[in-house]
Write a protein that binds this DNA or RNA. Structure first.
Ligand SMILES: NC(=O)c1ccc[n+]([C@@H]2O[C@H](COP(=O)([O-])OP(=O)(O)OC[C@H]3O[C@@H](n4cnc5c(N)ncnc54)[C@H](O)[C@@H]3O)[C@@H](O)[C@H]2O)c1
Ligand SMILES: NC(=O)c1ccc[n+]([C@@H]2O[C@H](COP(=O)([O-])OP(=O)(O)OC[C@H]3O[C@@H](n4cnc5c(N)ncnc54)[C@H](O)[C@@H]3O)[C@@H](O)[C@H]2O)c1
Lengths: 230, 230
DNA sequence: CCCACTTTGTGCCCGCTTTCACAAGAGCGT
DNA sequence: ACGCTCTTGTGAAAGCGGGCACAAAGTGGG
């Protein structure tokens, strides 16, 4: 107890913590759905697959929202984490490249339910433009600037072939998008003000055998899931 | 009784390094394709989007394969990294859950070219079973054990709904699969001998806005999956 | 043979994370 | 009020990982 202000000039919550908040959030929502009113750090940590001390330290960055001897109020914690993650407002997302992966993403219902609205689908292939995917009409990539402005898009999802990714990214940034989720297997070059996250499925596969193959007999493997995030 | 395992783990390449090796590998293959015989750590680091000192340190874990004053031999380095990652042999992969995501994965050509052979597609929905996807016939989940044994599957990719993921995972482990790539938004419970990696697209999205909202300092974009590592 | 130049491999330091361990707080039964 | 039990919040320590900076090693020209 050294702080008195509920929301001090916090320089920011550690990145590692932020990366785990969504995991806690999902666990909490599951608990909420089944009517659990409160949960201890031990139980929540177990569901989320992390150490309970880590969970408590993570949550302590948000403030003291727990009650000693009792635990955390599930609904209240959901609200606090959502607020911290900026999920209390909706974000508009544009998906660029409506191929195998782009379609899967567009058809996935799990985004909308979390405050992410898929606002537009864009592709360069004129034989795809105009198709209806997940209730949206695919628009031509030339309209990118118009779409971003018109739909107030702040997140771009790149699912184009690798060769097109950088130029698409540049155009997104050019019209004000500050967050990019990239599925193409290339390193995108962006100014520091833009946040890029990369999801590379091939790399995940390549890491898999090596981590496990290394030692002949029972090594200390990893039980939880690893998303180093960085 | 306070001290448990003093960390028996030794003899391995740092996990953070392993996670970057595939990135270097891809950069090297691009160089090889265009006929470049050698490359300096500076240049390779630039392509891979990392610090050159970090790259050198990463490579030093594999051995001293560089030549001072010259750089690294591209082909030789490709071989060494591939060997370290266990990519010199082929791995059989089974995809379970042939929905939006499972289909995208099955249709993706980038896996086969890297030593991963998609050996089987499995689903519980009998209206899907028998369909041809990416040249493979979808088989019923009941045949999982037979398929794993018959095709010598060592990597399972779970693309089922969250509710089915744990049971599918248990069955995979039960018939000898030691590596699992999980796309379902749940934390899988597995014995330490099994390596699970999670790719959670929703989480990536949720992290995106918050990381960028913060202060302008040090928010250089760039990240692995989650990864953070994870 | 020597010197100037290039590039690797690594010692060292620093900051971020994780984990432990425990005091302080909160509820409950008596 | 008191003591017991449960659980949080957090110092402190340990462990990684990143990056600077430099000596060592290799190349090429004269
Ligand atoms: N499908 C997967 O499971 C998978 C796995 C790992 C990585 N990836 C990566 O994701 C990306 C997409 O994969 P995919 O399987 O969907 O490929 P895909 O070829 O099926 O789809 C790519 C789409 O992008 C469109 N496109 C091409 N250039 C464009 C441009 N300049 N602007 C807008 N759209 C453009 C194409 O018309 C096509 O519809 C690729 O970079 C791939 O390497 C995919
Ligand atoms: N599609 C995406 O972009 C996306 C994004 C993030 C996360 N995910 C996650 O990936 C998973 C799959 O997503 P999807 O969009 O492909 O869902 P989907 O509903 O389209 O496909 C799921 C498939 O799994 C099959 N299935 C169900 N139970 C099964 C069982 N016990 N054994 C074998 N197969 C079974 C279903 O028949 C269906 O074909 C989900 O967990 C989802 O949350 C998907």
């Amino acid at each position: 107890m050294t702080r008195r202000t509920p929301r001090p000039r916090e320089r920011g919550i550690p990145e590692a913590t932020v990366a785990r908040l969504p995991v806690y959030l999902r666990a909490l929502q599951a608990l909420d759905d089944q009517g659990t009113p409160t949960v201890s750090s031990e139980d929540l940590a177990s569901i989320a697959g992390v150490n309970s001390a880590k969970l408590r330290k993570d949550l302590s960055h948000l403030g003291s929202y727990g009650t000693r001897g009792v635990g955390y109020d599930v609904e209240y914690l959901i609200y606090q984490i959502s607020r911290e993650l900026g999920l209390t407002q909706d974000w508009s997302v544009a998906i660029i490249g409506i191929g195998n992966l782009g379609r899967a993403l567009a058809n996935y219902g799990g985004f909308g339910s979390r405050g992410f609205r898929i606002a537009a689908l864009l592709d360069a292939d004129s034989s795809i433009v105009g198709d209806k995917v997940a209730g949206l009409s695919v628009r031509h990539i030339d309209a990118l600037e118009d779409v971003v402005e018109g739909e107030d898009v702040s997140i771009g999802v790149i699912a184009t072939p690798a060769a097109a990714a950088q130029s698409v990214c540049d155009r997104l940034i050019g019209c004000g998008v500050t967050s990019v989720l990239n599925f193409a297997p290339v390193v995108l070059n962006v100014p520091p003000s833009v946040d890029v996250r990369k999801v590379d499925l091939s790399i995940e596969l390549q890491i898999l055998p090596s981590t496990n193959n290394e030692s002949p007999t029972g090594t200390a493997g990893r039980s939880g899931s690893g998303s180093p995030g960085a």
